[in-house]
Amino acid sequence: MRIALFVTCVNDLLYPDTGKAVVRLLERLGHQVDFPEAQTCCGQMHANSGYRDEAVPLVRGFVEAFDRYDAVVAPSGSCVAMVRESYPRLVPEAAGIAERVYELSELLVDVLGVTDVGASFPYRVTYHPTCHGLRMLRLGDKPLRLLRAVEGLELVPLPGAEECCGFGGTFALKNSDVSTAMLADKCAAICDTGADVIAAADNSCLAHIGGGLSRRGAPVRVMHYAEILGGGS
């Protein structure tokens, strides 16, 4: 299957390893990956901050970049939720592409029917289901099923997993003190699990969580789950 990768702006600049892992993983599973270079940003930050006029050109740009593909994958629950939930409201012509954009675990489990991707990762991992993947995309246990199938990986439950980490895009800046209080509880819960790695489906949330863990000097690595799945056995 020919699949277009929407890497997302955050990953492009800050976390290219996540994008590389998706490419490696899908190619290992025998699929062809395209990276349409016209892609930029989905516009979520603008739309969610009240700048619709600035978001609309980005939506149109997304449609132009991806409209010719049957399947688009993005390693971000939040960006996919933006495309699926908000695009049709912002630009009615975007409704078609919105249905063909998948978060990585949706593509693997629902479209490609794979849960064991042949990865190996001999560490204790805990998983934080990020809010937009959890409540807008209803990813459910798809990422967990993928992680459980990874050779050597020990998945430990995260208490209060479904509670928001406090990132929330510009919320982290505009309401920094509340965001920090939420982060403190999330970091404490992660540390209590004794996991080596905290994984999630969104590097934006992980930047926030990782920033908090690093400030505390906590010995927990932060990884997008795509990077775990991308590692071969």
Partner: peptide, 28 residues
């Protein structure tokens, strides 16, 4: 400022040494 609101309580990531699109161009 304004990113000081971020670093008040969290370390911030720096851009990678090579962006994803540069890696793609270089390797494909």
């Amino acid at each position: 400022w304004p990113m000081s609101a971020w670093t008040a309580s969290r370390d911030a990531p720096l851009p990678a040494t090579e962006t994803f699109r540069d890696w793609w161009r270089r390797t494909r």
